[in-house]
Computed example of a mutant assay.
Amino acid sequence: MRIAIILALVAGPVWAETCPQARDISVELSALFEEARTASDPASGQAVSGKMWELWLDAPDDAAQEILDRGMAQRASFDFVGALESFDTLIAYCPDYAEGYNQRAFVHFLSSNYSDALIDLDRALTLSPDHVGAQSGRALTLMNQGKITAARTQMLAAIDNNPWLSERALLADGAPLGPVGEEL
């Protein structure tokens, strides 16, 4: 019922056509991963991270971009109900666009709905296996579920793609995903 209402609200401009295939950004991302791995300082690494996000946040068409931007603005203003509705609409319109799932997962995570966050993160990673944001988001979600070994493994995969993630601090000695020490 909720989806039907959402579809009715956006039926005009969005549903006049189908969502185009998301642009293949794999070659650009591979180059950015290598650039991140060889960045010499945090400022350079963060600049590369920003370029990655520009690629992921570039929706397949103007209608999808408008929905994505609206959902992100709603999330930023803590309108999680509105953000979920927007991301539901985006996913219904562009079911093969990984960022729709990643953004909806973030709202689920912020709402402590970790099971639904993992479902969306898994779908985002199926569509975009090297999506660093989805990888680190999945690691944080697993960590919040107490699945530390799986969270550590997932975070290491994200850090391999982008060693400048702020979440890398979670892998330090004594941090929640840090190496397991010797038991007394």
Rank of each mutant, 00 (worst) to 15 (best):
A83Q: 04
D69F: 09
A150N: 04
G45Y: 13
P13E: 01
N162F: 05
P20M: 00
P129M: 06
Q103Y: 02
T18R: 01
L142C: 02
H108V: 04
R123P: 03
S86I: 07
T149I: 10
V180L: 11
H108N: 13
D79T: 03
S44G: 15
K147A: 07
L90R: 05
A172R: 08
V10R: 13
L184Y: 05
V180D: 07
S128N: 15
L142R: 09
L170D: 07
A134Y: 01
H131N: 15
L142H: 01
R138M: 13
P95I: 02
R123M: 13
A151Y: 07
V27Y: 06
G12N: 09
A169E: 09
L177K: 00
S136Q: 13
L9G: 11
D24Q: 03
G100A: 07
E182D: 14
N144Q: 12
L32A: 06
T38D: 06
A172F: 06
S26M: 07
V10A: 12
L127R: 04
F78E: 10
R138A: 11
A117P: 08
L121F: 14
L57R: 14
F106C: 02
H131E: 11
Y101T: 06
P179M: 03
T141A: 11
E17V: 06
D96Y: 00
W56L: 14
L84Q: 05
A124E: 02
M52K: 09
L171A: 14
L165W: 02
S40N: 12
G45W: 11
Q135D: 03
L142V: 03
R168E: 04
D173H: 07
S30A: 15
A139Y: 10
E66W: 10
D41R: 15
A98M: 07
A47L: 14
H131V: 03
L140K: 04
A22F: 00
M155T: 01
P95S: 04
R168Q: 09
I25A: 10
A169R: 07
Q21G: 00
Q65W: 00
S44C: 04
G181M: 09
L57Q: 11
W56R: 13
L165Y: 01
A39W: 02
G12C: 09
D88P: 10
T153V: 10
A158R: 06
S44K: 15
Y97V: 02
W56C: 05
D130Y: 15
L142N: 01
R123V: 06
D58W: 01
A139H: 04
L90Q: 09
E66Q: 12
S30M: 11
Y93E: 09
F78D: 09
F106R: 04
Y114P: 00
I91R: 02
C19D: 00
T38L: 15
Q103W: 03
S40T: 13
S136D: 11
A92P: 05
Q145Y: 05
M143A: 14
M155L: 15
Y93S: 06
S111L: 12
A36F: 00
G178H: 10
Q154E: 15
L7D: 05
A47I: 08
L68H: 11
P176W: 01
V107F: 03
A175S: 13
V48T: 15
R168P: 00
S77Q: 11
F87M: 05
L165S: 02
L90V: 12
A22W: 00
S115D: 12
L68E: 05
V14N: 00
A4H: 07
A63W: 03
V27W: 06
A98R: 02
G181P: 15
F106Y: 12
A92F: 11
D79L: 06
A8M: 08
F106H: 03
A172K: 10
Q135A: 12
E85F: 04
